[in-house]
Nucleic acid binder design. Structure first.
Lengths: 212, 212
DNA sequence: GTTTGTACTACACAAATGTGGTGTTTTATT
DNA sequence: AATAAAACACCACATTTGTGTAGTACAAAC
């Protein structure tokens, strides 16, 4: 029997998770809180294996919450549950002591599986997040000064520059005398290379990495 | 009778413009070229009042073209016709000697009006572009070191930061515990204040101006 | 001389975005 | 208490974007 505690400010999601966990053989939800403070003030009374925790919380943030929990006990496992994969938080959370990082849209079955994985010593996370973690360590290799290079083709650099220059796909297409479809095609490939999924992310990355 | 010459690489648009001009009382299209080189090599034979010129041209750019034309004659008026308002080019073009700056989606009637305006000594441009020109001069005032301030409310800065952080509207809404609609509302206002019309532009501006 | 990499185009569909409305609730400031 | 500014929310509609799938053309590399 895996003893779970939930910290999540959305009533709907919190109750949903509780129902899911209590309704599943081998799992039990010991408690559910809408914020970290409540959890921390009663943590000594709890017998818990895994804490499912939201990152965006009113009051003490999930990150800070992790630190406090870990201060109290290193045995308790913490799984971060968040809506989207917000870059910086992933590492902060993992550094603070989280054992896994899941997105909220994770289907129920996968979620239960992840709890079990963590309980069994694993570090469940979505492939998307895993990728970021890998990237992170790759980018922090002490030996190589910089990974230097996201390998964009000349054409890809051109369209990306257009975007950073504030142009729409249509404007870029026009500027380069190619069709909008082709611009879309290039961005599809650029997004894959940069591991992003929106213009904003691409622009930020392009600027930060000096790709333009 | 206003004598017009067109330089535009899109056959469709070039022909369309020619038809419009020749089909209107008081206007005549003396010639139409698909690039600057052709225009320049035959400019001495032309009797022209106004040149409608695209900026994005194969070979010699529209900007360079303007300089060459002006070298030959200061009498000839040049109106830039471009698809979208590409920031930097506006100033280059105006500095090079353009008398006006129009977007291609300008309706026919307005376009003819603009040609007349230029002919009569005006500097027709869309309000959008006029705004940028004004901004430009404001930002280059020698006295004030920096205009310092696009006046965003605290909340607006928060949502903008989210965007620069790579979040989608939904993620931002979730993070701030507000609805997506509200995020959209804020961006509407932010866009107005920054004079932009897309995420990319907003991100670039936010970073460049240090708004985040 | 076939494979590979780059550039290009097209069709389709869901989702997100940009923009115009309207209207309510807070929070300051006078 | 009254007004203004900021924040919030919802509707609606046209575009744009993000992504999958599928195929053509050409030049360099094997």
């Amino acid at each position: 029997m895996i003893k779970v505690v939930i910290v999540e400010d959305s009533n709907t999601i919190r109750e949903g998770l509780k129902l899911l966990i209590d309704g599943t053989e081998g799992y039990h939800c010991e408690a559910a809180y809408s914020n970290c403070e409540d959890l921390l003030s009663s943590i000594k009374k709890l017998d818990v294996d895994v804490i499912l925790m939201d990152i965006d919380l009113p009051g003490i943030s999930g990150i800070e919450g992790i630190r406090e929990i870990k201060k109290y006990s290193n045995e308790i496992l913490i799984l971060i549950l968040t809506v989207y994969d917000e870059n910086d938080l992933i590492f902060e959370a993992l550094c603070a002591g989280a054992s896994g990082y899941l997105v909220k849209k994770t289907p129920p079955a996968k979620l239960l599986e992840a709890i079990k994985e963590a309980y069994d010593g694993g570090a469940p996370m979505t492939s998307n997040i895993a990728r970021k973690v890998v990237d992170y360590f790759q980018n922090n290799k002490p030996v190589h000064e910089k990974v230097e290079s996201i390998d964009l083709t000349p054409r890809e650099k051109e369209v990306l520059s257009g975007l950073v220059g504030g142009s729409s796909y249509k404007a870029i297409a026009d500027h380069l005398h190619i069709s909008v479809e082709t611009v879309r095609f290039h961005f599809r490939n650029i997004y894959k290379k940069l591991h992003v999924h929106s213009q904003s992310e691409a622009v930020v990355k392009a600027i930060k990495e000096g790709l333009v």
